[in-house]
Amino acid sequence: MPPGRVFIFLILFVVSVVIMYPFYFMAVTSMRSQSQYELGKGFSFASWIQLFQSVPVAKEMLNSLIVCACAIVIILVLATSAGFALAKAHFRGHGFVLLGIVGGMMIPVQSIIIPEYVNFVGLHLINNYFGAILVYVAVGTPFATFLMTTYFRGVPEELIDAGRCDGLGYGGVFTRIALPIAKPALATVVVLQFIPIWNDLLVGLLFLQEPNVRTFTVGLGVLASSRVVSIPGLMAGSLLSTIPAAVIYIIFQRYLVSGLTLGASK
């Protein structure tokens, strides 16, 4: 093996250790009881049992899933239709609209979350799935739209013309040509939106406080802030919460790479 490659492997090895260690820590710690954890050795399912007893895992996972799925579906609908229009409809002022959307990408959620909260209290959208979904959509749509616009710009104009000659109108071109060939971009949006929304604590903590609408991360947050904190129980919960994101990633990663390099070359 040439020295250059050895060097690269070494770097990759170090990086993967850094990335994998927290998982290792979570996995090992979750398999101990509190006393075993303090001792630094031993093996038991106690913390898992404790987790399922103190947190309504299934209910909160379902809440997370509902919020996540709805937000992503809405983001996809908005981002694809807006992206296609921005890339291909050639309407007057589309440059300004895109500029506005890119500007939206720069606004951190932290800076708008309090005014948003005040607004939503007035609209009775607190402790309501829809309130949180709206916030996630508002935060996620600009980047998703930007990504879809870039992708659709790469779709040859003649493909659309061919569709129009074959008998499609604007809507037909969008649903039967543009969307099917945008699969890599759609997968990219799904993965890039799912992970932050699933992992989100801030928005959930503010907008979904009541136990019946709590997401899993909020549930864990509550667990972490209770009087007696069980580190192994928390680790079990954290490990559990990484699984859906990993599953989503594995399902879509086939498309993800080509989606992320979009626009890099024609």
């Binding site: 040859p156 003649e158 493909l159 013309d161 061919a162 040509i177 099917p180 060939i181 699969k183």
Partner: peptide, 9 residues
């Protein structure tokens, strides 16, 4: 079309 514009999917 010059570049054929076949539907790739």
């Amino acid at each position: 079309f010059q570049n054929y514009a076949l539907y790739p999917h």
